[in-house]
Each structure stands twice: as structure tokens, then as C-alpha cells.
Nucleic acid binder design. Structure first.
Length: 120
DNA sequence: AATGTGACATACC
DNA sequence: TGGTATGCCACAT
């Protein structure tokens, strides 16, 4: 993908992105959440693509954003190719105790961290 | 200024 | 069951 994203580094005013990052940062180790859940929770239920976009740009933002804990609604590691190397996402997850099999989080239903349920 | 393109999700053929 | 269309929003062209 050809997007340099360099301009994002100046966007300290990006509410949407920041709210996304805020939620992602709250995901505990050993748990995972989804693009859709974050989109809903941040007020734009249909902006899940933007959450993916935010993850892609997350390395340009201050602080640590555990982008590897965000998967799609089936628990598939759709974003793995955007890490430094394709297996890093899985490695990070497994280092937290999240097992991954065929690019899918094992027991995704149990490990799913729903902001609505957890952040009341 | 307008159009295309996504680490997605849903609704509807 | 499976492809297509669309919403969302930022960025590239």
C-alpha cells in the first residue's frame, strides 16, 4: 500500500483516531477485540474500516498501541501483513497467551473483549 | 475539487 | 452460500 501516512503525525486533533487509540490501549493483555466493536464504541458503528486505518497509522502516534489485539469479527488476524513482519502479530499475541491457529484466534469468543461490557 | 482506496461490517440480492 | 453494494473517514492522486 502506498500511503505514506506521514501527515498523520501532525494530527493531534484527530478525535476519531484518538478515541480509537484510547479504546485499544484499554484492551488487556491476553484479550482481543474487533474493528467493529471499537467503531461502535467510538460512536461510528459503520466506521470499522477507519479503525483498521487507525491501526495502520498507529505507529506514528505517541504511546504504545497494542494493534495486534485488534482482529476482525471472526477473530482472524487480517492485519498481520502490516506488522514489521507478517508473523509478528501472532507472536505478540501468543506471547500474551493468546493462541493463534491458521491466522485465527483460538477461543476467540472467550477472549473477545467487548468495550461495552468491560468499560461500564 | 473529485475520485479512488482501504488492517471492516452489514444488508441485500 | 456467496458475491455486490454501501457506510464510514482520512489520505493519496
Amino acid at each position: 500500500m502506498t500511503k505514506s501516512l506521514k501527515n498523520l503525525s501532525r494530527s493531534s486533533h484527530d478525535n476519531f483516531f484518538e478515541r480509537v487509540y484510547e479504546v485499544v490501549r484499554l484492551v488487556p493483555e491476553g484479550r482481543v477485540t474487533t474493528y467493529g466493536a471499537i467503531a461502535s464504541f467510538t460512536g461510528s458503528p459503520q466506521a470499522s474500516r477507519m479503525v483498521g486505518w487507525a491501526m495502520h497509522a498507529s505507529h506514528l502516534y505517541p504511546g504504545h498501541i497494542p494493534a495486534h489485539r485488534v482482529v476482525n469479527r471472526k477473530g482472524i488476524l487480517t492485519g498481520k501483513h502490516h506488522f514489521r513482519h507478517p508473523e509478528l502479530m501472532q507472536e505478540l499475541l501468543e506471547s500474551e497467551g493468546v493462541l493463534v491457529e491458521n491466522d485465527r484466534v483460538v477461543e476467540f469468543n472467550k477472549l473477545f473483549w467487548d468495550p461495552y461490557k468491560e468499560l461500564v
